[in-house]
């Protein structure tokens, strides 16, 4: 079914926002590790693996608009979201610390930043993946109708 110009513009805008979120998340995580020299913990790496390719994939899907990206990006976003939720559960001690896989090296529950008393790197990642997940879910619903 060919999309009308109006709805394709709408989809394009939302994918553009997705690309912005992914790019800000990627640059932000690089800022933390390369400029502020916070060593990334293993969970952070797993989430990076899911986030970084999205920067390229969303960009490619914008020119020309390719809605197949929703399928491919959803897979990466779901995996990233899974790790983000897991890490936040560890951080808020809902899951026991002993169950965490990163006993060696950097602790996944360390507080590198704590803005306004509650914004941590772990939370920032969760917010980014949740936003992407929500937007992609919305697009999927929209395209089906």
């Amino acid at each position: 079914m060919p999309l009308s110009t109006k709805s394709s513009n709408h989809i394009w805008n939302i994918l553009f926002i997705c690309w912005l979120i992914a790019t800000i998340a990627a640059l932000g995580s690089l800022f933390f590790s390369e400029v502020m020299h916070f060593p990334p913990c293993i969970m952070c790496w797993y989430q990076r693996i899911c986030m970084y390719p999205l920067v390229v994939l969303f960009l490619m899907a914008l020119f020309p608009l390719d809605t197949h990206i929703i399928k491919y990006a959803s897979a990466l976003v779901s995996i990233g979201l899974f790790f983000a939720i897991y890490q936040n559960l560890l951080y808020y001690k809902i899951l026991p610390e002993a169950a965490q896989p990163c006993a060696q090296g950097v602790s996944c529950t360390s507080d590198y930043i704590n803005w306004f008393g509650f914004i941590t790197i772990q939370l920032l990642s969760l917010i980014a993946f949740s936003l992407l997940f929500g937007l992609l879910f919305y697009l999927k619903r929209k395209l089906k109708v």
């Binding site: 553009f16 690309w19 912005l20 790019t23 640059l27 690089l30 800022f31 502020m36 914008l62 020119f63």
Partner: peptide, 23 residues
Amino acid sequence: KQKLVVSALLVLIAAYIAGSFAY
């Protein structure tokens, strides 16, 4: 649209570099 994406990218990269120097 191309202009929008390119300018957004430039703004983000500029913010990153400025942020590094400021930090």
